[in-house]
């Protein structure tokens, strides 16, 4: 009986290697939740490939009992692209971080996203370099003091969501390492999407940047600081008795307090639509602390042809129009002549 026919469990996706992240690292939760989601996705284990670059997050493939390729710094999207173009039937996941994906690998992430290969990119954002022991990363906030920035970082940070939207991503989402339910939901959605599914996962680094996402990680404050995006639902957040809504006018977000029992729509609160323009996506991306809550969920999900489908179609069309390639015919194509024996 093939394995696919057997009901798989989380256990099937755990490799025999000891997990070696620091105690309390957000990566543990992400790993456990992904292993929990995998059996539901209906993909045979042998068809799953995890590809990573370099960094704490990039150790991920070693812990998944699937195929895995731990590659070089920043280039995971390119290795994954080669795998997906070669074997479109494989289910390819890229695991990267804010340094790997947006610093050294920013170029490859940009081009992979715009080509829209059908793969999942999980970017663990802890706003710090963990594996190299605590330097600021491209998503670190300005002024962050680290070993390499004792006077404060002078870099203006990049926003992963706006970056992905700018690259023309067809699927952009954000979720939180310890919010199991939301994380699993977003992973499922990402997998369902045909095209490059970009997921920013807010992840805590307990050693070098502890508490960076505490407001949205902590169950007691999450309601107040996270804006959960749901298709067709108004942009409302806050505790039950202190709800607030987000208006978006001319691309500029603003907050509105909602009286108890009030209809958000009557107060001009925007209704979330994943299929709206990229401009709407950028407006959502600009909703950020300290003035605003942190939006989590699917920012954008639209359809576009995937690179590997187009490539496969070109190969099929060439075979159809020209017939399957014949080496002898190729070698004899064009002008040839015979030199006869003397």
């Amino acid at each position: 009986m093939s394995e696919a026919a057997v009901k798989l469990t989380k256990k099937n996706f755990e490799s025999d290697q000891d997990v070696r992240w620091c105690p309390g690292c957000g990566d543990y939760s992400i790993l456990a939740n992904l292993q929990r989601v995998m059996p539901e996705l209906g993909v045979a284990r042998e068809n799953v490939v995890f590809v990573s670059g370099i960094g704490c997050s990039s150790r991920f493939p070693y812990y998944m009992n699937t195929y895995g390729f731990h590659t070089i710094h920043g280039r995971a999207p390119s290795f994954a692209s080669g795998i997906k173009m070669s074997r479109p039937e494989l289910d390819v996941w890229v695991v990267t971080g804010d340094g790997d994906g947006l610093s050294i690998g920013g170029n490859h992430l940009l081009h992979t996203i715009r080509r829209n290969l059908n793969l999942q990119v999980l970017l663990f954002n802890n706003r710090v370099y963990g594996l190299t022991k605590g330097q600021y990363s491209p998503t670190s906030l300005e002024g962050m003091r680290t070993k390499s920035s004792p006077e404060g970082s002078m870099d203006h940070p990049v926003d992963p969501i706006a970056f992905a939207l700018g690259a023309g991503a067809t699927f952009v989402a954000r979720t939180v390492d310890v919010d199991a339910k939301h994380l699993q939901h977003v992973l499922r959605r990402a997998h369902e999407h045909r095209g490059t599914a970009f997921v920013e996962i807010l992840q805590n680094c307990p050693v070098y940047n502890d508490g960076e996402w505490e407001a949205v990680e902590d169950k007691t404050t999450r309601n107040r600081f996270a804006l959960v995006l749901e298709q067709g639902e108004p942009l409302v957040f806050g505790d039950k008795d202190a709800r607030r809504g987000v208006r978006i006018e001319s691309g500029v977000p603003s907050l509105v307090d909602l009286p108890d029992g009030a209809d958000p729509l009557e107060h001009g609160v925007a209704v979330h639509d994943e299929k709206r323009t990229a401009a709407y996506g950028f407006a959502l991306a600009s909703i950020a602390p300290p003035q605003f809550p942190t939006p989590v969920g699917v920012f954008r999900a639209v359809e576009k042809s995937t690179y590997e489908d187009l490539l496969t179609a070109q190969v099929e069309r060439a075979v159809q129009e020209r017939g399957p390639g014949e080496l002898a015919a190729l070698l004899h194509s064009g002008d040839t002549w015979t030199v006869a024996p003397d």
């Binding site: 590809v51 280039r75 290795f79 080669g82 795998i83 173009m85 070669s86 490859h108 081009h111």
Partner: peptide
């Protein structure tokens, strides 16, 4: 998009 991506994709292809 560049020389590095070119070989990385090719290594990915060989892996596959």
């Amino acid at each position: 998009e560049d020389e590095i991506a070119a070989i990385s994709a090719a290594v990915g292809a060989s892996y596959a």
